[in-house]
Design a protein around this nucleic acid. Structure first.
Lengths: 235, 235
DNA sequence: TAAGTTAGTTGGACTGTACAACTAAGTATG
DNA sequence: CATACTTAGTTGTACAGTCCAACTAACTTA
């Protein structure tokens, strides 16, 4: 790392930001917070990803910092937190050279309803964007998060983290379809999921106006399953 | 990002490190540099990933900083530089809370022979490690880089960046096999590569002691190709 | 009882890998 | 100069899993 023992040269600002996804109202949504309106702040009043400065006294490491920021904003512990990447440049923050470590989190819908900070709000993801103009380079970070999510959903069981404890196969397929924004084949989907040793049936059915559906739950504390193919040849 | 306008609280040290891979002597190797022996330095004399502090005056952004560090150590511009992740904690550097932005680069073998800094040296990757004990948490970063490389090689054309301008299909297959550390099926490999619109034949043959092999080159300035399957069902 | 909707299954076509045997083109050897 | 050896490249069969479409199953409502 350093060639010189001098440590008192200028250091970049260091922050952590979290892209929190959930399925709400049958759509992919992301949690944003509104920045304070004080004129002394950059991007006053603009919407931004939840995040903030690393606390060198309080944060053990980056992931703990991200989990803390997430907890502060949403009140829940995310079942899934993955590092997304880092963005650092001289220009992205008007206060000076800054670098942010971005994470993305997946929340089940039922965990999105509770206590939300007053300046936090869910926004639908449209394409790879949201309606409001975002502070800093957060639009770019959000775009990368959506791309990463979509690409991993093609060949992993990530959407399982967006589901409640018990769910049906059609519900899981619907989640995949919302994230990927395209329909999937029913029979191939079922074959894949059931072959993956990922879920197990529970002795209950989901009752609705039509034929009841088998309920499943995730098998024990699994990390995401990787499939050996993508869904539709993306050609 | 920040809730408070105070910017004069302690900031983490910010560095960039690069994991440079190449195939040398029919093996996957990684480029390391030896740290200065001065007692005032952390990990004096230990081997480490090439990298260093972000220069807030000189570096435009993180990727430019990584490219600069790479150039300083190897003298070449890497045809492939990808962000790997970031590691930050209170403990990873004895000088204080620090965060490093790690990149990984792929070099073709012929680019590894030239001017190398006197304190730089190539080491064979054995499993997911190298022989010498590495400074900081660089062993962990290297392990993540090897895992990322291996997993992407399963379903992308990344190894193309490890090849010279012209190469044969058996040579490309051999590169895949070295990185994955397992043999691949010849005919399936050829079918996949030729179907991928990735390479094109040149009007030359590679002559050797046996049957000559068709030479290919990469098609124009392609980003890596993604395949819709992995190679061998990993079960 | 019939119509409508969603759950779930079945079967045939197709794509691409796995495996193995084959042909092709060169060098080295007797 | 024929034969063995080696590596390049092809061919064919089996198989796994998706794609597509039609089918059956279970429930509600009219």
């Amino acid at each position: 790392m350093p060639e010189k023992p001098e440590l008192d040269f200028p250091r970049p600002l260091t922050t952590v930001d979290v892209v929190v996804f959930a399925i709400r109202s049958d759509a992919l949504q992301v949690l944003l917070v509104q920045r304070p309106r004080a004129e002394t702040e950059p991007f006053p009043g603009a919407w931004a990803l939840p995040g903030g400065f690393v606390d060198v006294a309080g944060d053990r490491d980056l992931e703990a910092c991200a989990a803390r920021k997430l907890k502060d904003k949403t009140g829940v512990v995310s079942p899934y937190l993955e590092q997304l990447g880092s963005w650092g440049s001289a220009m992205r923050d008007p206060r000076g050279w800054s670098a942010t470590h971005a994470y993305f989190a997946l929340l089940p819908e039922h965990a999105t309803g509770g206590t939300l900070a007053p300046d936090a709000q869910w926004f639908a993801v449209e394409g790879e964007k949201v309606r409001p103009k975002l502070a800093f380079d957060h639009a770019e970070i959000l775009q990368a998060a959506v791309q990463r999510l979509r690409s991993k959903v093609e060949y992993t069981s990530l959407p399982a983290y967006l589901m409640p404890q018990e769910f049906t196969l059609p519900e899981l397929q619907r989640t995949y379809e919302i994230v990927l924004d395209r329909p999937l084949e029913k029979s191939a989907f079922r074959t894949r999921m059931l072959a993956a040793d990922l879920i197990e049936p529970v002795a209950k059915m989901r009752k609705g106006p039509n034929r009841p559906a088998q309920l499943y739950r995730l098998k024990k504390a699994k990390t995401p399953v990787f499939f050996t193919r993508t869904f539709n040849p993306p050609g």
